[in-house]
Design a protein around this nucleic acid. Sequence first.
DNA 1: ATTTTTGTTAACCATTTGGTTAAACTATAT
DNA 2: ATATAGTTTAACCAAATGGTTAACAAAAAT
Lengths: 205, 205
Amino acid sequence: MVKKIKDTGAEEKILAAARKVFLTQGMAGARMQDIADEAGINKALLHYYFRDKDKLFETIFLEEAQKFFPKINKIFNSDDALFEKIENFVHEYIDEMQQNPYLPWFVMNEMNRDPQKFLDKIWGNSNRPDPSKFLSQIEKEVKKGTIKRISPLHLLFNLLGMTIFPFISKPMITRNLGMDELQFRTAMEQRKKEIPKFIMDSISK
Amino acid sequence: MVKKIKDTGAEEKILAAARKVFLTQGMAGARMQDIADEAGINKALLHYYFRDKDKLFETIFLEEAQKFFPKINKIFNSDDALFEKIENFVHEYIDEMQQNPYLPWFVMNEMNRDPQKFLDKIWGNSNRPDPSKFLSQIEKEVKKGTIKRISPLHLLFNLLGMTIFPFISKPMITRNLGMDELQFRTAMEQRKKEIPKFIMDSISK
DNA sequence: ATTTTTGTTAACCATTTGGTTAAACTATAT
DNA sequence: ATATAGTTTAACCAAATGGTTAACAAAAAT
């Protein structure tokens, strides 16, 4: 009956280990034994805390997705002006990615595997990314004539692509361009300013 | 000794099946039995033609990667003017993705899993994407003053991101925006013009 | 025609892997 | 001290999975 009065850390250690293994190996590639080893505990303990692999995976995936998407929503649905919104989005997103570089790949990977499952299950219609306000905001600006005529959808694609893609392709890009970890970090840091500038240069009249 | 005088199709059927299964499930998620079923042949025949799973996977991956990257190289290393190069790249890339939508995700996915392995093995220094000429070309244009001051690296990231990202995030994006297959296709078709325009609007003086 | 090589299969095998069990250990309450 | 509930482990189990074998069928070579 008494629950979690004291946590020596077993459960937390499992979660940390599972996070690491799932994020790098994906659901299919992850091994329960690897997670146990990584956590420094017996494999059976995994099943003691989390019934089975699916449950454990879902816990991790949900946790990661939920700490990630709401932030975006908040920005997209804020009352900021368009340019500030773009700036905020790029800034926050890149910060998040710097701390958690495997996240976007992980999310998209599992989503590719079984789109139905996650879009329904993980985002309970509550925190699913909703760019509709952002899109209509662009349209409004176009009509007002403050920015050039551009399709909101394409601007969204551009914004997302420029921001997220480097992190997804990191291994390929860095290896191919001979960048090291630090160079990549600084490049991404620069992009916080480069991307908004690039967009504004393109759409402002 | 005589090899492939006639191909009833077993080998081809295996390759087609393996392509399908590997592209959608990844190396870790793919099951040899699934490939056999998909090909309509006995599982043992897989091992008759391709020693083991690794070999089969490598065949597919190599085949896919090699029909994909050289094309890009040709564009990046051509003598076309910068804008034409960008136009060509976007055009060719989107065409390729339309026909083979799982490819970019597949390539990057497996590359994330084990970067060392593929970058050395798959691209034998021959057809590895090499944007260096493209990068220096941008720098030249900047120095000539024909375009705004922009970091070549960031422009490359922007170009790649805007072009490739929608295909990687397709399941997420389409579901979230309520797009169907046709709408997605037409949107991507539009991007062939939208992306070059977006870039030129941003960097031209 | 018959031998030999190539292609194909069903049945099988060994290992991996997710998951269970029963026993042991730890702390807390009585 | 002892019972009790919660925690952890070693040993085990069954299913899944990659891979092998031996027999059989089809084709090619003799």
